[in-house]
Design a protein around this nucleic acid. Structure first.
Lengths: 340, 340
DNA sequence: TTGTAGGCGTTATCAC
DNA sequence: GTGATAACGCCTACAA
């Protein structure tokens, strides 16, 4: 592997001059610049990134921590984050935590070991007290996940309000016996959604049966199970707020197999407006987050912090969402099929 | 940021000894080891990764180049590759090429600049002659993509045979007028699939109308368009081999809206056995690739090359696939609805 | 405009 | 067992 030294020798000049050419700095005559460029080409010289990093103390790399890329929401998010980061000249390392506390901390260590300049946290398995110390090693920005805390910038939608709106929509469609499903890992987001759901019931003088909170539900298969739980244990349920289009899809799929009519017998709301929500029959009512805008702002805030080491204020950016009403919830909710 | 020097000073020992402790090397008395560990803890010392990389000339990092993570097949693949790599102590950088030649070459440059020790190529936008020079900088393994070439190891299924089997299945179900859709970027894979498709027609003495090759089709929306193209221009078509479950899903969705019966009026085969293929009504007949096994072998081969710098032979690993028959193809294919 | 020299943080070599 | 010292490849005062 050719080094800067080799190039200098071949060109009959010093390392300094070569370095100047590499970094497009002034004070090099065209003639010598030419000579050096030739030497570089001839040797197939490429600057060694580890050496540059060590010297400059910067990696031009960002770590993105998220539960899993196979969740389409995070797939979209990473795609968007990567594109934006690339515009700023940053490379992205995707870190899948699988909602595992240890993995999350291991990946945060990339910051300590100076393998990345900053972190986007789209996963949050640990308590804040365990995350906070990492701030000393570099900037961290929260995207999607959030909490009550002002020590860190956050980019997210209002999940309380989104759940409230979605639940209200179910109630407006005539649902009176509502169930609620929540994902595998309990975070502030799921808590907020639950609160929004409960609040919507409350303002409509509906009472909530705690047995209708179905936990650990985060994919299609578990959506199917959730349906059977309702069918077998609480068949009077007429509406469900799921935190996920995949769960909603699983429920619809199982419901169809069992001869239940959606939304006639059961109205279902998903989350994230994934492709699947539009393809299911019936199409799924869902909440859409402005992923691209959130990703863009996230990188922008993080890059800003990485550049102005100190004095950038922490700030919370709350983005608007959209409740997309489709056929999985409907006014026919009041007309159950005979079979039910 | 504390350095090894700081630790040494605080512990009253030399950098060398500290280094020994960091790397679990012998020849350090328990007593001094203890002292050093304490000093490290006290200072919050973490070894600097850039310095280690420079010194060791290794990054413990692998780049995975793929078109896009939002394609569920690649989502699954990256999840699996990452897990396997992590078992070998390697970190993964996900590089989305979007089938762009320049991006692909830019990312391959990570190898030249020594930012990664090896590359998994699951995208292949460039000609081999443009990729080949990078082999001088480090090992590259092809996963999913492949070609006729013996200079590099490849892990993949037999796409010719898979397409052949899928097409044969359509024919066995009574389809006689077959169409074929292909993704955005033309690669060896798409060529192989096309050949397999054509060969199946040939051995059954069916002729192929070139107008029924529908190109540039790689997502749900384009699947919908493909359906309308068939409906409006070639309504006699009774079977389609798509290279993608998403395209198949889009076609089924549009077909349902237009009152076509699948498979009665049109049988459809997808590819990859994505979640959606099971959720659509009808469920989609599809080809399943053994993603985990392929990912595992890919990393294994790559790691082996990274360790035995020179003498590991190139080898092609062909994995078995499975044609999963579901309701989107069926013997009712011969009974079109009146509306068609 | 160009070159010299020192150091970024580690680890390997060799001497003690 | 332990420690000086010399790289790894690059950048940047500072000197010329």
């Amino acid at each position: 592997m050719a080094t800067i030294e080799d190039v200098a020798r071949l060109a009959g000049l010093s390392r300094t001059t070569v370095s100047r050419v590499i970094n497009d700095q002034p004070y090099v005559t065209e003639e010598k610049k030419e000579k050096i460029l030739n030497a570089m080409k001839q040797l197939g010289y490429v600057p060694n990134s580890s050496a540059r990093r060590l010297r400059s103390q910067r990696t031009e790399t960002i770590a993105v921590l998220l539960p899993r890329v196979t969740n389409p929401f995070f797939g979209r998010l990473i795609e968007s984050l990567e594109e934006e980061a690339s515009d700023y000249g940053y490379q992205v390392i995707v870190c899948q935590t699988h909602d595992n506390k240890k993995k999350e901390l291991d990946y945060l260590n990339l910051l300590k070991t100076k393998q990345v300049d900053g972190v986007v946290l789209a996963s949050l398995a640990n308590d804040w007290k365990d995350i906070e110390p990492f701030l000393a090693s570099g900037p961290i920005v929260l995207c999607n996940e959030y909490m009550e805390n002002e020590q860190i910038s956050m980019i997210h939608i209002d999940h309380f309000q989104a759940a409230f709106d979605a639940t209200l929509h179910l109630i407006e469609q005539g649902c009176r016996h509502l169930a609620y499903t929540t994902g595998g890992h309990q975070t502030h987001i799921t808590q907020q959604r639950k609160n929004g759901f409960l609040r919507a019931l409350e303002v409509n003088n509906l009472i909530f049966n705690p047995e209708l909170e179905i936990c650990g539900t985060l994919n299609v298969e578990e959506g199917r199970k959730a349906f059977y739980y309702i069918k077998e244990r609480h068949p009077y349920v007429d509406g469900v707020f799921t935190g996920s289009d995949e769960v909603a899809a699983g429920m619809i799929n199982a419901a169809a197999q069992e001869g239940w009519n959606v939304p006639g017998d059961l109205s279902i709301v998903g989350f994230d407006n994934q492709m699947i929500s539009l393809l299911m029959v019936p199409a799924i009512t869902t909440v859409q987050q402005p992923i691209d805008e959130m990703a863009s702002k996230t990188i922008q805030v993080l890059v800003d912090k990485m550049h102005n080491k100190n004095h950038s204020m922490e700030h919370r950016y709350i983005y608007p969402y959209e409740l997309i009403k489709r056929s999985s919830t409907g006014i026919n909710a009041a007309i159950p099929t005979a079979s039910k």
